[in-house]
Structure formats: structure tokens, C-alpha cells
Design a protein around this nucleic acid. Structure first.
Length: 215
DNA sequence: ACCCAGGTGGCCC
DNA sequence: GGGCCACATGGG
């Protein structure tokens, strides 16, 4: 089977096996979309860097409890002392608060909110996110795909493991793997979102802990 | 007492 | 430009 057909078939198989992966997304992401759901996704993308979702979730709950679960609240902070304490469960307390503040002030100062930033086209928005401290390829694509509904495929550790296991590529650098997936799938945001989630759910098991942070 | 988890930036050669 | 390495917390 040609590689592109094989990859799309893999998506169909995973979908059939696990069902609609949207049910694994946190409630604030799937249903009950509040005005700030994009912001929670973007903040979560930074908090979960090299960190279990459970720990990132503890930090998200803490942010909400302290009224800091929004980009404007974070951007308005005088210093990072309180933010540091609040996101501590997510680890990397020296870097993550600064990364959150950089993203928040960039969006708030230049666009006001993520709805407005989402008007940038994919390529321009991606370049701008990548220019921020602490936002690399995976975090940028995660924000673009899940918070801004842009069609860019996220390559993470789970995706790489799948590529190795199924021998989908000989090269493993980010850009190449991304093109392998994007060239094999219909260019649809929902397909990219579903596939990425399914890859994780398939490896972690059905109890994928993304379901936490309910209300 | 280990080992791991949706990465990133800063070194080194 | 690829190949290491520190970074921090909570849970198994």
C-alpha cells in the first residue's frame, strides 16, 4: 500500500477502534465553549510541555482559582511571583511563568485577543508564535490547531513512536514528519485534530486523562 | 529510590 | 546544523 494511503487508512482504523476522539477532549475544549476556551487551550499547551497532563491540569485549576486563567489577567501582572506559585504543579517554575507571560502580552498588546490573532493566516501566525520565548514547533502547532482551528499537523512524542512502529518514514525531524502526515490526509482541521488525539488515546489507553478539568 | 511525562533553548563541536 | 543537556513537579 502506498504510504499516503496507509496513513489515511491508519486514521480510519483508529477512528473505528476508539470512536469520535472529541469525547476525550476536556469539556472546556469540546462542548460548552466559553468565550475564553481558546485561551485555556493556549495556556494548557505551554503548561503541558514535557509534563503529564495531570500536572498541567493541576496548574490550570490553580490558575482558575486565582482568577488568572486568561491571557489578559496574565498579561496584566506586575511581576511573575504569584504566577510562579500558581503554576508550580506543572513543573519548570523558572521557565513556564515567563513563557505564559510572553505569549499573553504578545497577544494582548498586539491583537487584544486570540479571536483577532486567528485572523492571521496560518504561515504568518506560525512564524509569530515561533518567535516567542518558549514556543517551539510542537507548542506553536498545538495552539494553531486546537486553539485557532488552523490546519497544521502536530508532531509529538506519540506521533514519532507511531511512525517508528509502523515504519511510516525513514527520517524523523519535525518538518519532514509533518509533511508526511499533511500530504497523506485531507487538509481538514477536524481530521488533523482527531488523528492527533487518536494517536495519543491509542497509546495511552482509553482512560486518557485529558478528561479532567471539568467545570 | 528510582523512572517517566503532548518540549524548549542554550550550549558544544 | 545535528547532538547533548538542564530544566521541576507529581505519580507509579
Amino acid at each position: 500500500m502506498a504510504r499516503d494511503k496507509q496513513i489515511y487508512q491508519l486514521y480510519l482504523d483508529l477512528y473505528r477502534k476508539h470512536g469520535d476522539p472529541a469525547r476525550f477532549w476536556p469539556q472546556w475544549c469540546s462542548r460548552n465553549k466559553s468565550l475564553t476556551w481558546r485561551e485555556v487551550v493556549a495556556i494548557g499547551a505551554i503548561l503541558t510541555q514535557r509534563t503529564s497532563w495531570h500536572n498541567a491540569d493541576l496548574a490550570l485549576r490553580n490558575l482558575r482559582k486565582h482568577g488568572l486563567l486568561s491571557l489578559s489577567a496574565i498579561a496584566g501582572l506586575r511581576n511573575l511571583n504569584r504566577l510562579t506559585e500558581v503554576v508550580r504543579p506543572a513543573g519548570f517554575f523558572r521557565t513556564k511563568p515567563r513563557r505564559l507571560f510572553e505569549l499573553a502580552s504578545f497577544i494582548v498588546d498586539n491583537y487584544g485577543d486570540l479571536e483577532t490573532f486567528a485572523r492571521e493566516d496560518l504561515k504568518a501566525g506560525r512564524e509569530k508564535l515561533l518567535g516567542l520565548y518558549g514556543i517551539g514547533l510542537e507548542t506553536a502547532d498545538t495552539i494553531l490547531l486546537y486553539a485557532l482551528d488552523k490546519p497544521t499537523f502536530v508532531i509529538d512524542e506519540y506521533t514519532k513512536r507511531l511512525v517508528i512502529k509502523k515504519r511510516l518514514s525513514e527520517k524523523f525531524d519535525y518538518d519532514h514528519l509533518q509533511s508526511v502526515f499533511e500530504n497523506s490526509l485531507p487538509r481538514e482541521v477536524r481530521v488533523y485534530q482527531n488523528f492527533h488525539t487518536l494517536i495519543i488515546v491509542d497509546q495511552k489507553g482509553e482512560e486518557a486523562s485529558m478528561m479532567e478539568m471539568v467545570e
